[in-house]
Simulated assay, not measured.
Amino acid sequence: MEFEKCMNYPDIKHEFLGYLRYNSELDWYESQVVFYETQLTISISTDDNNKVESALYRVNSVVRELKHHAKSAKEYAVEQLLKLKNETWLDEGETLTSEEFKNRMTLEGLVFFPDGEAELYYNDGNLFLRHCILIKMDKHDCFVDASIRG
């Protein structure tokens, strides 16, 4: 990694994320990658010493396997949220199949934390009145929570 001085926090040059720039309002570094022709925001939280090395290690492993993780996250969302959608958030009384549910979800961003956890943020395709679908993954690539936000 190359470091270039920029304000209080240096930009970080990463092999496939390009330049990571510090966002002082959110207290993390940000970059973008293209995934299936969609621009994804990658956010990386710093540790207590304002370092990102441990989170960057996690970024490397998750982004290299993003196709697999994104598919698995959608399946996990179906397991956790489809019943809620069909029982509470009905559109004109019609229930959705798991495939219809997954097809409406679009990955928009990922957040990585120093402890190895990651969060995948999905546009809900108006499943939940334009709330975000958040899928949490632990450091062992196991999904541990699915919720709607916003």
Rank of each mutant, 00 (worst) to 15 (best):
M1H: 08
E4W: 05
Y9I: 00
F16H: 10
Y19C: 07
L20I: 08
L20S: 04
N23H: 07
S24D: 13
E25L: 14
E25N: 13
L26N: 09
D27H: 13
E30F: 05
S31H: 08
V33I: 15
Y36M: 10
E37H: 10
T38H: 12
T38E: 15
T41R: 13
T41L: 15
S43Q: 15
I44Y: 06
I44E: 04
S45H: 08
T46G: 00
D47A: 09
N50I: 04
N50T: 05
N50V: 05
E53P: 01
A55N: 05
A55F: 07
A55T: 02
R58A: 07
V59I: 02
V63Y: 12
A70N: 12
K71D: 13
K71V: 01
E75M: 07
A77W: 00
E79C: 08
L81D: 04
K83V: 07
L84E: 12
N86I: 06
T88P: 00
T97K: 07
T97N: 06
S98L: 00
E100N: 03
E100S: 11
K102L: 01
R104M: 13
M105R: 08
T106G: 00
L107S: 01
E108C: 13
E108F: 00
F112Q: 01
F113P: 01
F113D: 03
P114F: 05
D115T: 05
G116K: 09
L120W: 02
N123K: 06
N123I: 00
D124N: 08
K136L: 05
D138G: 06
D141Y: 13
D141H: 14
D141A: 12
C142K: 15
F143A: 05
I148G: 00
